[in-house]
Amino acid sequence: MRFAIVVNEGPYTHQASDTAYQFARAVLAKGHEIFRVFFYHDGVNNGTRYTVPPQDDRNLQKLWSELAESHKLDLVVCIAAAQRRGILDANEAKRQGKDGDNIAPGFRISGLGQLIEAGIEADRLVVFGD
């Protein structure tokens, strides 16, 4: 079965990203497919590589990046939500005249259409939020 996952909150303040991550791992362990993970609202903050959590804590950005790498996951950060919150890839940084980008490996910035497409293409869409 094909799943789509939506993450509406950033890391650490809310458990949403942790739960979504554990759910994603369980989906894959069961042999299901993940069509896309879509990061919306403050969820876009999962996609910055500039977070430096304490060493004895989990690094959610890294966990997502590694899961994306090992399972060829499509991690999409909503562009409109990202722009509000300062999450940029190299293209966007250049386009907006900003001095650097911060997008983490395995994440890409794209439009809200990617969320609707995920709803259409996946058999189940599961939302994690506040």
Partner: peptide, 12 residues
């Protein structure tokens, strides 16, 4: 932001 999804989603 929900409304923004609705507007984009309408095109689908």
């Amino acid at each position: 932001e929900s409304l923004e999804v609705v507007l984009i989603g309408a095109a689908f």
